[in-house]
């Protein structure tokens, strides 16, 4: 099977679109008709065939366009990619994990030949062929983390473990839900989560940190998180709030189905072998309400979740201003019928 990559944009004319296949495999994040925080963690990879949970690093029809969008963001603001000096080894660990996984999972698209530390990497979709020496940064055009994450969908945070805490000491962050690497770099787990409402009091972060510190080599996990974004924009950063913030005010009852997107993050956790750091990839999937509602179960459920959500969460997730329009629109897809458990569409 040869994958077709979309010619599309995530800014300006926003030509981003999902094919019927992309709609079918969308990682819908709600397993019931209401939402509150939970430490909703599962083993990764693993899941039904042709879902984004099947492979270590999911590659889909948006791959090439997402990498072009990352290039634009980085050219405008190089600080979206930062790695403190002690994190280079973790960058090599990440490069190895991604190259080995992609070459194994997508042999039509990626090839990796290894002879000791002499590596030869071929990335067909992006037209890249590179021979380099593993663990020798002078043989790559940039640091190892930057090199591989310019070729991998999703944001990446590399967390250094010390003093029984995790520290965000490196990252490639260009498709974030309104947080800044430049602001958070060097912070610990509790510091960078400080803006999240309610969760600290609920003890969510203590449990989550304890879990993450115990993640061992060879045990990979995932969880889903979500927010709402107006227009299919990857770069919803605080740095560029002046560009995307005002777009929230363009939502009308007529255009909400096309312009309002559910933004889902597939977050995964990997213990890296040489550095003992944790890799935290955050992969973003965008789908507008119209496409979500094309699946009856998802349409019903999203209506109920967004109608009944805690107001503090609607505010934090940035859609309180449009909540009424969104819920009114979705109500037409909710006939009150019961929904089946779990996130997957009914067969």
């Amino acid at each position: 099977m040869t994958m077709q990559f979309n010619d599309e944009t995530f800014r300006g004319d926003y030509t981003y679109h999902n094919s019927p296949e992309a709609i079918r495999r969308f990682p819908f994040p709600f397993d019931q008709d209401s939402y509150m925080y939970s430490v909703n963690i599962e083993q990764h990879p693993g899941g039904p065939k042709d879902t984004p949970f099947e492979k270590m690093f999911d590659v889909d029809e948006h791959y090439v366009a997402e990498m072009k969008d990352r290039e634009i963001t980085l050219a405008e603001d190089p600080l979206r990619c930062q790695s403190l000096p002690h994190m280079e080894l973790a960058g090599w660990d990440l490069l190895e994990l991604i190259m080995v996984s992609k070459a194994r999972d997508y042999p039509d698209l990626f090839t990796l030949h290894r002879d000791g530390n002499d590596w030869h990497w071929i990335n067909k979709p992006l037209g890249i062929e590179k021979k380099f020496t593993f663990l020798d940064a002078t043989t790559l055009p940039c640091g190892p983390m930057e090199y591989i994450t310019r070729q991998t969908q999703g944001d990446f945070a590399l967390l250094h473990e010390r003093d029984n805490n995790l520290w965000m000491d490196a990252g490639m962050i260009t498709s974030q839900a309104d947080w800044s690497l430049d602001f958070d770099v060097g912070m610990n787990f509790f510091e960078w989560h400080a803006p999240v409402p309610k969760a600290r009091k609920m003890g969510v972060f203590d449990k989550a940190l304890k879990f993450l510190l115990a993640v061992g080599q060879g045990q990979h996990y995932r969880r889903l998180n979500w927010t709402m974004t107006v227009n299919p924009r990857l770069d919803t950063s605080p740095e560029n709030y002046h560009k995307w913030g005002p777009e929230k005010r363009t939502i009308t009852p007529e255009n909400v189905g096309q312009k309002q997107f559910l933004r889902v993050e597939l977050q995964t956790f990997f213990r890296l072998p040489r550095s003992n750091a944790l890799a935290f990839p955050i992969r973003c999937y965008l789908m507008n309400l119209e496409d979500i509602a094309s699946n009856p179960k998802w349409g019903r459920r999203l209506h109920r979740v967004l109608r009944d959500i805690d107001p503090a969460l609607a505010e934090y997730k940035g859609f309180a201003v449009n909540q009424k329009i969104i819920v009114d629109y979705l109500s037409q897809f909710d006939d009150g019928a019961p929904t089946s458990p779990g996130i997957f569409p009914d067969a």
Binding site: L84, P85, H86, E161, G216, Q217, G218, P273, S275, N276
Partner: peptide, 11 residues
């Protein structure tokens, strides 16, 4: 599998 509770602080 190997696990580490006594890693070097590479800083």
């Amino acid at each position: 599998l190997p696990s580490n509770l006594f890693q070097l602080d590479l800083r």
